[in-house]
Amino acid sequence: MALAARSVSEIVLEDISMKYETASSDVLAVQQVSMNIAKGEFISLLGPSGCGKTTLLRLMADLLAPSSGKLSVAGGTAKEARLAQKYGIVFQSPVLYDWRKVKHNVTLPLELKGVSKKQRDKRADELLELVGLKAFGDKYPWQLSGGMQQRVSIARALAMEPEILLMDEPFSALDEFSRERLNEELLTVWSKVGSTVVFVTHSISEAVFLSDRVFVLSPHPGRLSAVVDIPLPRPRNKEMRNTPQFFELIADIRSRFEGV
């Protein structure tokens, strides 16, 4: 994404902190995090396990309320964005219904909204073609590989044409070969739909390959320790993983964790 295109803010966090109350003591998960994510931008939240990546994603999605600070989404509150169905969410696990065919998993959000069957079927065909699964609409999730199931999840998340796509380590359970292939396919889908993407990962190479910018979080409690621009040209392809610039960016980000 060109720097000039970062003029319209989509998600803004100002001094956000999140404290979980437990029976024994309070746990500070995220501490005074500020971010400004532009409309149409692909950013990654990167950091070790337990640094608050998923907490931040859940705050953006209005699944949690911050303990302090201010959060705005699409010019309003996170709750307003959620009620306006501006979000699509992809979790670490595909969370598909095994008794529903693939196309009926994809159309579930439309069905719940009362969209006609004709329109639902048309949208399912479009989305399954977009994620390369048009021939598998009449299969059941259990008949697909893990990577294919996750592509179904992405198609379902896009069913309502969300302005914002939130992704919580969606490929972490896959082998490296499948993960890299799905990274490439995700960028192809993103280039066509244009959603703002917030992608949670603990893989430095994945964050570099996918993102316009990488937001580096420190270990618990999560604080924003760096924001790294990724100047790799788009569209990106697998050959970029072998370029000196790609390795330099990985080394730069890795160095930011040293001594933390």
Rank of each mutant, 00 (worst) to 15 (best):
I11G: 00
L217H: 10
E184M: 08
G147D: 05
V260R: 15
S34Q: 05
P235N: 07
S68T: 12
V198G: 00
F91I: 00
D252Y: 03
F247Q: 14
E14R: 15
L110H: 06
I154Y: 08
C51E: 09
L174F: 12
L3V: 13
L63M: 15
Y87A: 09
V33H: 04
I43Q: 11
G50E: 08
F199S: 07
I37K: 08
L165F: 06
K19W: 01
G75V: 01
P109E: 00
Q31V: 00
L71W: 04
D212E: 06
P170N: 06
K238T: 05
V189L: 07
L13N: 02
L186V: 12
S203Q: 06
I230Y: 06
R256E: 11
T22M: 09
R151C: 03
V95L: 14
R236M: 09
R179F: 10
Y140R: 11
E10V: 09
S17M: 12
A29E: 08
S191A: 14
D15G: 15
S225C: 11
I16T: 02
A38H: 11
L224H: 02
G147K: 12
R58H: 11
M240C: 04
K113I: 00
D62N: 15
G47L: 10
V228A: 01
A124Q: 09
E248G: 15
A124W: 08
L158H: 05
S7K: 15
S24F: 08
D15P: 08
A157Y: 09
E14W: 04
I204R: 11
F215Y: 15
A159P: 05
G76I: 00
V200F: 04
E184Y: 07
A38F: 07
T196G: 05
I250N: 14
T196C: 04
K117T: 13
K238A: 15
L249W: 05
E248M: 09
P94C: 10
I204F: 07
R256H: 07
S49A: 10
M148T: 02
E176T: 09
